[in-house]
Design a protein around this nucleic acid. Sequence first.
DNA 1: TTTTCGACCAAATCGGTTTTTTGGTCAAAA
DNA 2: TTTTGACCAAAAAACCGATTTGGTCGAAAA
Lengths: 200, 200
Amino acid sequence: MKNLDKVRESILDSAAYFFDRFGYEKTSVDEIARRAHKAKASVYYHFSGKLQLFRTVLEQEMERVRTGLNEIKSKYGTITTDEVKEYFMTRIRLMREAKVYRRYVLSSYMYGRNEVSEIVDEVRKSLDDEEYAYYVSLCKAGKEEGIFPEAVSPEVFGNMMLLVLKGIEIQFFDTDDIREMENTYRAMLEVLMFKLYNNN
Amino acid sequence: MKNLDKVRESILDSAAYFFDRFGYEKTSVDEIARRAHKAKASVYYHFSGKLQLFRTVLEQEMERVRTGLNEIKSKYGTITTDEVKEYFMTRIRLMREAKVYRRYVLSSYMYGRNEVSEIVDEVRKSLDDEEYAYYVSLCKAGKEEGIFPEAVSPEVFGNMMLLVLKGIEIQFFDTDDIREMENTYRAMLEVLMFKLYNNN
DNA sequence: TTTTCGACCAAATCGGTTTTTTGGTCAAAA
DNA sequence: TTTTGACCAAAAAACCGATTTGGTCGAAAA
């Protein structure tokens, strides 16, 4: 790794450290710089500003989730019940680890849009798009196998899944009780995968 | 109606008016009293305090939702697809009209618990309990007819439904676009009522 | 050339103080 | 029985100087 990247990385680590603990507003660029053993102006040499720093930290978090989920998807060739189960359970865990994101999931609903919530939504969208595609193909595959009703449109189904999952996330965002969350997801899966569960 | 009740009602109307527009914190008992053409002390003669005023307004809102939903339930004898469809579509509309509640759905998640969010949760619980029972019996009925997988526990299903619906509510709480919300609910119903939809 | 940094600025935030408003009470009036 | 104005302690709002903040720049290292 080039030295430039090393510096960038250490600044980002420091930023993530503070954003995680104190949030965007209560973190100053100066303390981020100090923790990375740099002067504040150096941070501005590597990043265009505090907001870009924040965005990059979020992007890293979302990237980790996307990578983790794609690993599951590529592990199985076609969509199976086992895959979907593992997908959801992994999703819970990965989302939990995206701490800065979780701190700001609610921000777009709490205070009307601002620059921070704007960025949160934008970054989140990259994950949403990928998940949306996954649920659409899940629906299509389900219909081919007769597990899903023909009436439901894959696109509408995809949007519904995003909404439902995000809604659950919001309600669990400050709980550390992961068990209840898993139960909810399991119940959803059972209803979703009706036929497969019933044929056991 | 007794005159006493009339006064109470006009005070409650005034309180609802302000709570709806400015929320609990930004409404003063004095302005509530003025709008009801009473002195502040009169409000305290009829109600034990600002919080009880707030609670009563919320209770009225929830009562309207419960009544509306019970009308649907009693219109149909047994649980049918048509009933559930109408139940959900009515639910969207009724919830939308519970404005003060909607303003505070998020409060328990935003700021940690406080006296206001405590009351919101408490009052909401009366509706939750009734809905929970409905979804439990929906699940049982569904299992008897073979529409629902045997694997899913009615109690877990009931909790899941409450979570999912509340999650959706939260995300739509400041949108006036009712169409997208209806689409989401419709998609949910289609997946939920799989067999019935497929046998059409 | 590439990277770091001290000095600097306008704007926002902070801490402490005073002023106003607020939720709630009470004795007297209606 | 119901209403009210006067009253109080506490909370909130308004105020204001001092500090901190995000961001820039030109010079010094490397």
